[in-house]
Structures are given as structure tokens and as C-alpha cells.
Amino acid sequence: MKETRLGDFEEVILLLVGILDEEAYAFKIAEEFESQTERSVSIGAVHSTLNRLGEKGFLTSEMGESTAERGGRRKRIYSITASGQRVLQESRDFKVSLWNQFPAFASGNLKIEWLNL
């Protein structure tokens, strides 16, 4: 029985996979994470999360092409599955519904900066 909810870090990684599209492999995802959040992360940690997301069925992967700076080695490209997309949507809907229930936010009195996670 695999856990089917998303953790915070997992959600970000999943989104980054979607953003990077064809370039979504561990090294690039880690770089992107660091540049977007200005927090450092090891490739191993990202890889571990990608692996877990794969086990949960939110990601699939296949080997891509190789480049020179990889010493001729191929990379593993990740892509979001249908259930991955669904779980992202659910996560967003859930949060939006929470936002809406918060009177101060719902009345529009506060400026909200979206998605600054």
C-alpha cells in the first residue's frame, strides 16, 4: 500500500518535472530547485524523491540521450503521469478551498501573492 498523498517537497519536485518537461532529469531538477527556491539540495535527495514519486505512480521515466559533459552517459527523463497531474490538481484545489474559507482572504482585503511557496 503506497502512500498517495503529496509532501511539500514532493509537490515542488513534481511541479518542476512538469516545468522542465523534456529536460526533467535529476541534475537539472536539482539545479532548477536551487535557482527557484534559493535553497541548496543534493542530487541524491532529489533522486530519492523522484524514485518515491515513481513508486507512487505519479511519475514515469525513460532513458534519454547522452551528452559529452556526462561522459557519454545517458540521462533518465521523468514525466508526469495522469495520476500525477490529478494529485497536483487536488492539492491545489484543496489549498484554494482552504484559502477561500479564510474570511480575511476570501473578502479580498488582503493582497495575496500566489504560489510563492
Binding site: 532529469y25 535529476a26 541534475f27 536539482a30 539545479e31 542530487i43 533522486h47 532513458m63 547522452s66 551528452t67 559533459e69 556526462r70 561522459g71 552517459r73 545517458r74 540521462k75 533518465r76
Partner: peptide, 14 residues
């Protein structure tokens, strides 16, 4: 091994 070594190499040169 292949993907990880590749990733780490890329990281190293960057």
C-alpha cells in the same frame, strides 16, 4: 550507475 554517474559528472563540471 549510469544515470547517477552522469548527473554527478554534469554537476561536477558545472
Amino acid at each position: 550507475a549510469e544515470e547517477v554517474l552522469g548527473d554527478l559528472d554534469e554537476k561536477f563540471y558545472s
